[in-house]
Write a protein that binds this DNA or RNA. Structure first.
Lengths: 219, 219
DNA sequence: CACGATAATGGCACTTGGTGCCGAAAGGAA
DNA sequence: TTCCTTTCGGCACCAAGTGCCATTATCGTG
């Protein structure tokens, strides 16, 4: 797939050659608006390309697939998380660090909440996106696994780093689903609850689902 | 999708009308053999249909998608697991019951290990199947979530049942990946280790990855 | 034995996502 | 202007999947 290497970057204008007609961000805007209006599956790539004033072929130069549009610049998010983990002081217990990271990297700018909600709604509910998400989650898990591996002194592909990464992802996704179901819920609190329960082997799960129980067990 | 409702069943022969030319099981055999020979992506639905001596259109009456073939009769497996949970005595602690279930329902007949390995290899490594798996896992999680919900006295779609179901799935998948990487590994042991660690909030994860540590913490 | 109800088959056309190819357009530099 | 570089986007093509519908096989009945 030579497609993935030569995507135009929205960065500093290249010195030479024809200038890009659009950008990933702009395409994302256009696409998301269409998705919101008629739904994800009801919007074809032709629709998006037409609305953006580019050719269908060009669309696929900016995004490898229709699915990818919904994820925006996920890679940048991951880069931040990676950096956070790298700078995480060793005094913080591992599971606590994981909880904090998950909560921190899902804090939302109030003004972008509606878009993020739409995004997550589609990712978690449209089958095609639901399926595709696995591939994106893999990158997320890798970041977590590397951190855990460092703490445990094991390779990142060993059982525990992988299991923990999967479990964290699960807790996060479950929280998101809850958040989408109850639009009055606080995402941060849900994430805190889920990650905290995870860190305790779900032993406190018998407690009623009241407000944050034992959210800072070790720190 | 009216397609999903009227698939021929391999059960007792229907009294009237033309008889099915093949069966899900037979198609599965044919397809898996082709997948093993040339790979999943290199095998088209036309190839499978031709090899099975049926029309391409007919293939889609037996399986809703090419992806589905790999999963065989997953629904039956789930039905068994549901039944097991339903008959699980309340004395067994929840997390212990989950561990046992995961281990029990992944015990393999030695003679079908190679096929199962191929299956899982594809599911966990071929991107298209990796993505598709999410949709099948959802059913698996639902079974777990219902059991957990019963134990916790919460709705199945509440945060904890969902988070626990996701976490269990994660532990299981991580174990499978490990099993595939090291063909000398014992799947049951890996599952035991991962589920046990999960039940302890991964506190013992600092132990070296030696032979099953604390595999039967509560029973 | 023909007849009619029933159910599976499979061809055909069509939609959609995605890719390889390649010439055309656009812009900076010499 | 000319050359070089980069993006654009049309075209042809492939594969998955679906709706439609005529065809075929099978059973029960008159």
């Amino acid at each position: 797939m030579p497609e993935t290497t030569d995507r135009p970057s929205a960065a500093r204008a290249p010195r030479v050659g024809r200038r890009p007609r659009t950008s990933r961000a702009e395409l994302e805007q256009v696409a998301l608006r269409l998705f919101a209006e008629r739904g994800f599956e009801e919007t074809t790539v032709d629709d998006i390309a037409a609305a953006a004033g580019i050719g269908r072929r060009t669309f696929f130069r900016y995004y490898g697939s229709k699915n990818d549009v919904v994820w925006g610049d996920f890679e940048r998010e991951l880069e931040h998380m990676r950096a956070w983990f790298a700078g995480c002081p060793p005094e913080i217990p591992m599971m606590d660090a994981l909880r904090r990271a998950v909560v921190a990297f899902n804090r939302l700018d109030p003004d972008q909440v509606p878009w993020h909600r739409l995004r997550m709604m589609m990712i978690l509910q449209v089958p095609a996106l639901q399926a595709h998400s696995t591939l994106r989650y893999a990158d997320w898990r890798a970041v977590v696994a590397v951190f855990v591996a460092g703490r445990l002194g094991q390779p990142a592909d060993a059982l525990m780093p992988q299991a923990i990464a999967y479990a964290c992802l699960g807790a996060a996704v479950a929280s998101y689903e809850q958040w989408l179901r109850h639009d009055d819920a606080d995402l941060g609190e849900l994430l805190n609850r889920a990650m905290s329960a995870l860190a305790h082997g779900f032993q406190g799960a018998l407690d009623p689902p009241g407000p944050v129980s034992g959210q800072t067990p070790t720190g």
